[in-house]
Design a protein around this nucleic acid. Structure first.
Lengths: 125, 125
DNA sequence: ATAATAATGATAATGATTATTATTATCATT
DNA sequence: AATGATAATAATAATCATTATCATTATTAT
């Protein structure tokens, strides 16, 4: 049912090649240079699509803006309160134990683990 | 430096007696009945204060609205995609291992673990 | 009681996201 | 290659949560 669109392609290509967890505005600003006719609404619309298809995962950063990640393998995040960067944290061996924690409450099909603090780059600053 | 205010007191009392992780609008709507002069801005202002004092913790729910929790003991959350309720998940014995995961990236002073799925109440519905 | 100032209520402003709408692109069929 | 059906787009208005502004009120130290 979904038809091809050039815009969807370039947005997804952008995400795949930028592992920096960009937010919608950043994706828009960057792609706008190459595709001046691109609309911000199109970025939002396609991000929603990717999310529904589970081609990306959403990181709800602490300031309320959503960031996007094409790495759908299990991993965690670290948000630096100084630079705002979001880092990847590899999932540990005991990640299976983590995913079982919610069993008593319901059927969890995903979880998000975000650390908040100051990254190494910003500590010496 | 911070002065007493009746509003701050009732907002905090409300939070302590409502372990349902309410959001600002809900707190406001409920308290407004008893204190008709209460302003929504005051609710937001005081929630920020509590957050800065670490008297409450913030849960960034998936729809972008912030929810507040006076339980500052380490624990996790489960957000039901059907009813929207947020449940508490007790921290496990290995929670110390979880908190060490971020050490390679920086100094984490907090982390948030949220499960997404359908709660038991909503599964049979 | 008075002065200093923090807190409030009302509301405007902001910022992120979603909805609307007219137009354009895609794709299967003729 | 032209057509029709419909999904996607660009532009922009609308919405919703949150923050800023500002005149007024409440609290606290003197």
């Amino acid at each position: 049912m979904a038809k091809y669109s050039k815009q969807r392609e370039i947005i997804y290509e952008y995400l795949k090649s930028h592992r920096t967890h960009p937010e919608a505005e950043k994706i828009f600003a960057d792609l706008k240079q190459e595709y001046p006719s691109l609309s911000l609404a199109t970025v939002y619309r396609n991000l929603k699509m990717f999310e529904a298809e589970m081609k990306v995962l959403v990181i709800n950063s602490s300031d309320g803006t959503a960031c996007y990640d094409t790495n759908t393998n299990l991993h965690y995040h670290f948000e630096c309160s100084k630079c705002g960067r979001i880092y990847d944290i590899p999932a540990p061996e005991f990640s299976e134990s983590i995913s079982e924690l919610a069993a008593s409450v319901g059927r969890a099909d995903a979880y998000s683990l975000i650390f908040y603090g100051v990254c190494n780059k910003c500590i010496n600053k």
